[in-house]
Amino acid sequence: MSDPKAELEAFIQTTEFSCLGARAALKKGSIVHGHYAVLGDPESARAHYRDMLGYARDIRPTLSDKSFRTFVSTFEEPGGILGEEEYERLLWRHLQLIHDIDSRTYGLDEGATSDPDEPNFGFHVAGHSFFVVGMHPGSSRASRRFSRPAIAFNSLMQFMLLGDKFFSMQDAIRKRETTNNGSVNPSFTTYEYQMPSRHFSGRMTEEDWKCPFTSRHEPSSVKYTSDVMQRPTG
C-alpha cells in the first residue's frame, strides 16, 4: 500500500509544483497531514473536522511573518482520475459537511465572511479562516495534479502577516508557474479580485458560476476594503 504522506512530500518537491510556501513548510517540518477514506463522505468529513479543529485552535499563536504552516488532507477514494467538475462537486460537498458541523459552535474570523460570493470569503474552522487549494489527478494545472484527491488549508492570517513579503512570494510563484507550467493559472488572472471560492478547486470556472456552498453563519458586518483576503496565488 502506498504512503500518502510520502507521495505528498515527493509531489511538493517536483518541478511542476509551484507553491513556495508549501516547500518552505516541508523544509521546516510544519506541514500537518491527515488521511481519510472518502472525499465527500459524511464519516470522513467528521474525522477530518476533528483533526482540523485541533489544528485551527493551535495555529493562531504559532503564526508569524517568518513561518508557513499548512494542513493537507489526502483521500483514499475516489480512486482513478476524476474530471475537474466532479472533483469540484465532491470538494464543496466535503467542505459543506465540515461547515455544517463547525457552524453549530463557531463563528467568523475577524475581517472575513463565510459567504462564498464575497471577496473576503474564507473557509472557517473554529473561527479561523482558510484559503483552500484542491488537488487531484485530473487537474488541468500541473501544479495541482496530485496522485490522489487532496485539500490544502492555508491560514489567511498567515498571508496577512507576510505583509509586503507576500507580493514578492506571489511574483516568484507566478514566474515559476509560467516557466514550469506554461502560464499563470487563468482563474487568478481572470477573477483575482472577485470570489476566492472560484479558485478552491483549481479549475477555470465559467463567468456565471455559482459556488455550491451555503453559509450557516450570520452575514458579516465587515465590508471588503483591501486585497488582504485575495492574496493566495496558486
Rank of each mutant, 00 (worst) to 15 (best):
V72R: 03
A47D: 13
D100K: 09
L95A: 01
V132C: 08
S18Y: 01
R198H: 14
S155V: 03
V133F: 06
K28S: 12
L108N: 07
A126H: 03
E207A: 12
R145E: 08
D102V: 10
G34L: 04
T62K: 15
Q194A: 14
M229E: 01
K5M: 11
Y106E: 01
A142E: 12
E9P: 06
T225G: 09
F75E: 02
I12V: 15
M135F: 01
D102M: 08
Y193V: 14
G134R: 04
D58Q: 13
P61C: 01
S220P: 02
D208C: 06
T205W: 01
K210I: 15
R176A: 10
S183R: 13
V222C: 08
E218T: 14
K175C: 03
P219M: 01
F167P: 02
G122T: 07
R50C: 13
P196F: 07
H136I: 09
T74M: 05
S221A: 15
L20M: 10
F213C: 01
Y87F: 15
C19W: 03
L108V: 06
Y49K: 05
R104H: 11
F130A: 12
I12S: 01
M229Y: 10
E110Y: 00
L82I: 07
A126S: 13
T14K: 11
F11N: 07
G111V: 03
L39V: 05
S114A: 15
S155H: 08
E206R: 12
R145T: 11
H48G: 00
D117M: 11
G111K: 11
S64G: 12
E7Y: 02
H33A: 09
R104T: 13
R176S: 12
S183H: 12
E118K: 13
K5S: 11
F153N: 04
H48A: 08
I59N: 04
P42V: 01
T62W: 08
E7P: 04
T214W: 02
G138Y: 09
T233V: 12
D58H: 09
S226K: 00
G107W: 08
G234E: 05
H128C: 11
G122H: 01
L91A: 06
Q13H: 03
E77I: 02
P116K: 04
G54R: 12
S147I: 10
E77Q: 15
Q170L: 14
A25M: 09
H199G: 00
H35T: 14
E77C: 08
M52D: 00
F123G: 06
L63P: 07
S215G: 05
M229H: 11
L90H: 07
F146I: 00
F131Y: 12
Q194E: 15
L63E: 14
G83L: 02
T179C: 00
S187P: 05
